[in-house]
Nucleic acid binder design. Sequence first.
DNA 1: GTCTATACGATGATAGAC
DNA 2: GTCTATCATCGTATAGAC
Lengths: 195, 195
Amino acid sequence: MARQQDDARERLIEGTSELLWERGYVGVSPAAILRRSGVGQGSMYHHFQGKGDLVLAAERHSAALMQEELRSVLTGEGTAFDRIAAYLLRERDALRGCRVGRLVADPEVVVNDQLREPVRETFALLHKFLVDVIEEGRAAGEFAPELDAEETADTLAAVVQGGYALARAEQSVVPYERAVRGALALLKAAAPSAG
Amino acid sequence: MARQQDDARERLIEGTSELLWERGYVGVSPAAILRRSGVGQGSMYHHFQGKGDLVLAAERHSAALMQEELRSVLTGEGTAFDRIAAYLLRERDALRGCRVGRLVADPEVVVNDQLREPVRETFALLHKFLVDVIEEGRAAGEFAPELDAEETADTLAAVVQGGYALARAEQSVVPYERAVRGALALLKAAAPSAG
DNA sequence: GTCTATACGATGATAGAC
DNA sequence: GTCTATCATCGTATAGAC
């Protein structure tokens, strides 16, 4: 009974989150959303107050997907180094970039705390996961005791986000792959025995 | 005699490159450009064929500024490590991000080879400067011989670009600063004697 | 819940006077 | 070179029928 309505609502959210990934907030129009979602205009303004409202729901959808993926990769089994390597090397389309990180390039998102919140929250969670992994690795003797977990966590997160920028500039995944392999090599060299 | 005309042309280019930095291609309108530049509509369509043409000129302006800055910081005096540190730590407003790198987040720029070219060229030059510095450092015994220059160069470039994304998400320069300090610490640990 | 019709400002550009 | 109309189209939303 609630089937039909939920379909339209979900299709709008999924279509919008795809479009946001591709074009950002200012690059997306209601008309494009309707085309992508295969939903009529009446439905959209019935389920959502307007573009901003729908975009917020779509951002939260993207953030939830990303957070679940991060949790799965970074809090699983394996050594600290292996989990970090799994995060950096996991299958992805580097040319598409990050569906969450992409949003902070948008002028309307950065200026609006509500629209920025899902991104902030996701990056905060990523930071926490990485800090935990690094501290575990230090405790296990994988990394040198001097390695600063907070700093290194942000270095790794930045390598991923920045790697996407390099890849898009070249329209090639090569710079992304070089960036993450370089980061892993540096991290490997931070082992207590290395040098 | 050519003074007045050049003024309008230059003001348009500078105003547009500022707006591009803030809002990207899809977020900028001719009306906004005229307001920012203090120039009339007639001037704009006299000096440029349209938005795309003007944006291309503005991109080239931004790219030239950035390339000169990179050259100045990375090919100057000092040890390899010091020059890399100077690049990562140089004064900047991390919340504004990179006036060139910002452009690859724009859907219309990535899809258009002409609009993408100034970004590609700038990142290629940055890559070259960093590779050269790293190889110099390796030759001078500052870095371990195993350090891969191509990979490490992209790691460092990515840390900077990605650091901006983290900073914008938090609306704080702290994540950016942590990211670059973490990168420098890892690089320091890559010295032949370290470990 | 969904549809179509309607509205109105913004966008991106052209035309012709000065 | 610059200015002021003028224009077609798009973006964003509302109204009211079904």
